[in-house]
Simulated scan of single mutants.
Amino acid sequence: MASFLTSDSDYFMVITRNKNGSKSLQKLMGMSDYMDVFFFVAIMRLFIHVMIDKYASYVAIQGMRIFKQDKRELMYDHILRYALFLARDQYGCIALNEIIKELDDPYYRDELLDIISNNALLLSNDAYGNFVVQHVLKLHDSRCTGNIVDKLCGYCIELSFKKYGSYIVERLLEAGDIPMATIILDVLACKTEMLIRLARSEYGNFVVCKLLELTNDILTADLFYSLVNKLRPYRFLLHRFHESKIAAILDSMRVPN
């Protein structure tokens, strides 16, 4: 049965792309080493096609759970090779996040996280890649988070104007003192005109609002006061619905000039 299901590539893909077919194959996997050879060969032969399909990808992920170590390592090598391609695909990014969550091999885990963090700027600007960066930040891996901060330093304002980039900046704000300090220094370094544009923009206003809410309790007084004092003279420009929350926060503050 395993040979019949996997010998023809087209037929194998028809099965794996079907929700019920994918589940059935996953149940067959792991029953014997002999059968797993057929599944492994079929997956590796069609690796990219499998990994970017909504249901077929779960067949490969199941293989990474139950195959012998030598087979898993060959699959991990392919994951590293195609990580950026998968991260920028609609379903590939979901599969990659699942692999990141379950990967228990320290070497391959670190290698994969390094690929993501070293390409954080590219992925943060991508409609699907940003979800991978967000997922990695939620792991609270200090080394990986530090690498992402280094790669995004100087780009936080630019990212905050964009739908996907603003998600990343907000996640960084939640990642700890050092990422937050990096973002606020980027904000303070920009021209006042740029900061007001950010506060009034569709996505940037959420970043500025979160900065004000979080920095009041976490960062040093000097950094917090510097941000508030840079915004307050232009409070009158922040009268629309979204920005009104920023204006309300500014009005509630009593900080020295």
Rank of each mutant, 00 (worst) to 15 (best):
R240E: 15
L113V: 06
Y107C: 09
I99N: 02
T6F: 10
G176R: 08
L237N: 06
R45Y: 08
F12N: 00
G63R: 01
K162L: 06
K19A: 14
E193M: 05
L121I: 01
M13I: 15
I196H: 01
P233R: 10
R88Y: 02
D141M: 04
A56R: 02
K27P: 07
S124K: 05
S160L: 12
I15C: 07
T6P: 07
N20P: 01
I15Q: 03
M194E: 05
I116D: 02
Q90I: 10
Y55W: 15
L84D: 04
K68F: 03
L25C: 11
I115P: 00
R254G: 06
R235I: 15
S3P: 03
K162T: 00
Q69R: 14
Q134S: 11
M194R: 07
L103M: 14
M253H: 07
N119C: 06
M31V: 15
V208R: 04
H239D: 14
E111M: 13
D77W: 03
L5S: 06
F4L: 14
I157P: 00
S252M: 11
M35R: 09
L195M: 12
K245M: 13
L84G: 03
I94N: 13
F206I: 03
S252G: 10
V149G: 00
L195Y: 01
S201H: 08
A175R: 02
F38C: 12
H78A: 06
Q69W: 08
F131S: 13
Y203D: 04
D110F: 06
M64E: 06
V255K: 01
I79R: 02
I184K: 00
I168N: 00
L223S: 01
S24I: 11
K23C: 12
M1S: 10
Q134W: 05
N229K: 03
K138E: 15
N18E: 15
R65D: 13
E98H: 08
L25R: 03
L84S: 06
N118F: 06
R200Q: 10
K68E: 09
V37R: 14
I249M: 15
P179E: 05
R200M: 07
E111C: 13
V37L: 14
I116H: 03
A199C: 09
I196W: 02
F236M: 11
V37W: 09
D222K: 08
I52D: 06
D53R: 05
D8N: 15
D89H: 07
T220R: 13
Y55G: 02
I79D: 01
M31Y: 12
M180Q: 02
V132H: 07
D77M: 10
D141Q: 08
Y34Q: 15
S124A: 14
G21S: 13
L96E: 05
L112R: 08
A60N: 04
K23Y: 11
R171G: 02
L80S: 07
L122Q: 03
N118Q: 15
S9A: 15
M1F: 14
V208F: 04
M35V: 11
C209H: 11
K230D: 05
N205G: 04
A221P: 06
K245W: 09
A2T: 10
V50C: 14
N18Y: 12
D251P: 08
K71S: 06
Y55Q: 08
